[in-house]
Design a protein around this nucleic acid. Structure first.
Lengths: 135, 135
DNA sequence: CCTTTACATTGATGATCGTCGATGGTCATT
DNA sequence: AATGACCATCGACGATCATCAATGTAAAGG
C-alpha cells in the first residue's frame, strides 16, 4: 500500500492564545494531540526520540504489546506527522520529526508578559507548583 | 464536590527525549494530551486563553454545543489541569493555567541542535512554512 | 419563600478507539 | 524456487468517549 497516507499538519503555527481557533484548524490540531493522548504512543515516541533511530522490533519488548498493536500505533504517530519511518532491509526504522514537535510547542505557548495579563499571577510562574488539591 | 476531582499533573518536567517514559508517567501525561485531543476542547482552551477570563456562557454560542457538553469539556480541561475555574456569583469564570502549558512545552522539547539530527531527511518533510508573519 | 438564571450531574446512545488474532506482502537466506 | 523473518492490513470485540435530553443544585432578585 502506498505510504502516502495523509500526514496531519499543525495548522496553528502560532500560540493558540492569539485568537480563537477555527473549527477546521481545531480538528487538525486535535488530531495531532490525540495521537499523543495514548500512553503506548507516548512511550513509543519517547523511545524513538531518545535514540537517533529505532527499529520496530525494539518496541514490542519494552512496551509488552503485540506486533500489530505496535504497528498500529506507529502508523498513527506517522499519520500525525510526529515520526517518520524508513525501511532498511526487513526492518522499519522510525525517527522523530522535530519540526512537528516544535510546532506543537508553538501552539502551547502561553501569553507573553507584554500582554495585558495580571503580572502578579505570572510573576511566580516557573516550575510546576504542586497545587494539587485532593485532600 | 467538584474540587475533589483529581487534577492531572504533568510528570515529565523535562523533554521526553531524555529517556524512555515510565508507564505511569506515560499514562498521566497521555491524559493531559488526551484532553487536548478534541476539537471542541481545543477551541474552548483557545477562547479562554485569548482572554483573561471567560464565562461559560460565552462558550456555548461560538461552539454551537449544548450546555451540558460545554460543562463536560470544561470539566475535562480542568481535570487535566489546563484551566482552572472560579465561581463569581452565578457565572463560572475560567482561566488557563500557564504552568501546565509550560510543562507540556517542556515535554515536547525536541533534541537540541547539538544532537545529531540529519537535516537532509527533514528537508522535504517540513509542514511548517517559516513564512508565517501572522500580523 | 418562591421564581429565575446558570452550571453540574445522570442516563442513554451512537461513534471512535485500543487491542489482538489471522492473513497477505516483501525481503533475505538457502 | 522454497523457506523463514518481519511488517502492514483486515476483521472483530470490549472499552471509552462525545453528545444530548432531562434533572438536580446553587446563587441572585422580588
Amino acid at each position: 500500500m502506498a505510504p502516502a497516507k495523509h500526514v496531519a499538519e499543525v495548522p496553528c503555527c502560532g500560540p493558540l492564545v492569539e485568537h480563537a481557533l477555527d473549527e477546521a484548524d481545531a480538528v487538525a490540531l486535535a488530531a495531532v494531540f490525540a495521537a499523543l493522548g495514548d500512553p503506548v504512543r507516548l512511550r513509543i515516541l519517547s523511545i524513538i526520540a531518545s535514540q537517533d533511530e529505532t527499529c520496530s522490533c525494539n518496541l514490542e519488548g519494552p512496551l509488552a504489546k503485540s506486533q500489530p498493536t505496535i504497528s498500529h500505533h506507529t502508523a498513527k504517530l506517522a499519520a500525525a506527522g510526529l515520526i517518520s519511518g524508513e525501511r532498511r532491509g526487513r526492518w522499519m526504522w522510525w525517527r522523530v520529526v522535530p519540526e512537528q514537535l516544535a510546532a506543537l510547542q508553538a501552539c502551547l505557548a502561553v501569553v507573553d508578559p507584554s500582554r495585558t495579563v495580571d503580572p502578579s499571577g505570572l510573576d511566580g510562574v516557573g516550575p510546576l507548583e504542586p497545587a494539587q488539591g485532593d485532600g
